[in-house]
Simulated scan of single mutants.
Amino acid sequence: MSEPAPAGALQVPKAAELVAAQLRRQIVMGERAEGELLPPELRLMTELGVSRPTLRQALRILENERLVRIHRGRNGGARVSRPTVDTAGRHLNNLLLFQGATLDDVHTARLLLEPAAVARIAGTVSAEDIAALRVAVADSLAATDAADIRRIGSEFHIKLIELTGNRSLVLFARLISGLLDGAMERHDAERRKQRIPSQASGLIEEHSRIVDLIEAGASREAARHWREHLEAVHRQLRKSINTDLVLDIES
């Protein structure tokens, strides 16, 4: 019977974890294409120098991480599934559920991210970028379906972050947007049920104002205006949803 490792001892990764790490790197670095069928077991075992049980355990690790899809049967195998924002969002949502996070927490994260990004891009974006933002505002104002208005508005927020050119911030913005989408959908449904008029047009007009401020290079005013806009959106949300409750599965 082997002795347990002493406290604080360096843990040696298992062979399956090392194999999973090697395949994971190939997938995330683009060496394995989306939908690509990995080589048959025997070939992979030879290439990686591992046993069948080790390889299968490594593939199970990657399957749990949604990086491969395992198809059983005669024509089965492991197909590459590149990481997506939706997948990351589901993992983040589960983690936030475990941590007891609320919609108020998500709102605070948005407040820390978006106004700073807006201040950063003010006066630095091209005329083409400004024109694209104005088209997005016009599309929102022209939309009549609540789901379309919500989707276009959400993408507008993300477009602002994209203009920073920072891919990490864009990912965070999409994750935050995904967490808020479900709540906003329930908010809209509750307002329709209570026959409360939508205030979406007023909030969208604030999108137009932020474009003006960005174009003018008014960074401080842009940050202040966008912070006030986000606070207004959150106040509207609170009218039909208890935002200090822990996020639920549908958030």
Results as ranks from 00 to 15, higher is better:
26 Q>H: 12
194 Q>W: 10
212 D>G: 04
29 M>G: 11
156 F>I: 06
41 E>P: 02
189 A>T: 11
128 E>T: 11
73 G>C: 10
11 Q>P: 05
242 N>W: 09
119 A>R: 00
32 R>Q: 12
227 R>K: 14
28 V>K: 08
117 A>I: 01
89 G>D: 04
133 L>R: 00
214 I>L: 05
212 D>Q: 10
16 A>M: 10
52 R>K: 15
42 L>N: 12
216 A>G: 07
211 V>H: 00
182 G>W: 03
176 I>E: 00
181 D>W: 07
196 I>T: 14
204 I>H: 04
85 V>R: 02
85 V>A: 11
201 S>R: 15
138 A>C: 08
1 M>N: 10
81 S>D: 08
27 I>T: 03
58 A>Q: 01
170 V>W: 01
236 Q>V: 04
237 L>S: 02
101 A>G: 04
56 R>Q: 14
235 R>I: 07
28 V>G: 06
35 G>D: 06
186 R>Q: 08
208 S>P: 06
164 T>H: 04
114 E>Y: 05
225 H>T: 09
211 V>T: 06
118 V>Q: 00
116 A>G: 12
89 G>R: 01
202 G>R: 07
251 S>P: 00
1 M>Y: 12
211 V>C: 06
78 A>H: 03
99 Q>N: 15
243 T>Q: 06
128 E>A: 14
47 E>Q: 15
103 L>W: 04
175 L>Y: 00
152 I>F: 05
12 V>P: 03
156 F>A: 05
90 R>H: 13
102 T>D: 08
203 L>F: 09
238 R>W: 02
103 L>A: 04
59 L>R: 02
53 P>I: 06
177 S>Q: 08
186 R>E: 06
105 D>L: 09
113 L>V: 07
113 L>E: 05
8 G>W: 08
166 N>Y: 05
169 L>N: 03
84 T>V: 04
126 S>V: 07
64 N>K: 11
226 W>G: 00
100 G>F: 08
133 L>D: 00
206 E>V: 05
51 S>L: 07
163 L>V: 06
118 V>D: 00
12 V>L: 14
153 G>H: 02
225 H>A: 12
59 L>H: 03
144 T>A: 13
90 R>A: 13
216 A>Q: 11
221 E>L: 12
213 L>R: 00
124 T>P: 03
230 L>K: 05
44 L>A: 03
74 R>I: 12
236 Q>N: 13
25 R>E: 11
200 A>G: 12
206 E>R: 15
243 T>L: 02
125 V>H: 02
200 A>C: 11
59 L>I: 09
199 Q>N: 15
251 S>H: 07
112 L>P: 03
115 P>Y: 01
66 R>F: 06
37 L>W: 07
5 A>V: 13
4 P>I: 10
125 V>T: 09
163 L>Q: 01
175 L>E: 02
145 D>I: 09
197 P>W: 04
239 K>L: 14
110 R>Q: 08
25 R>Y: 09
242 N>F: 10
19 V>A: 08
135 V>P: 02
143 A>Y: 02
187 H>G: 01
96 L>V: 08
146 A>K: 06
153 G>Y: 00
191 R>G: 02
141 L>Q: 09
37 L>Y: 03
237 L>K: 06
115 P>L: 01
146 A>H: 09
207 H>A: 05
162 E>P: 02
39 P>S: 09
40 P>S: 06
94 N>C: 13
105 D>P: 04
41 E>D: 14
247 L>E: 01
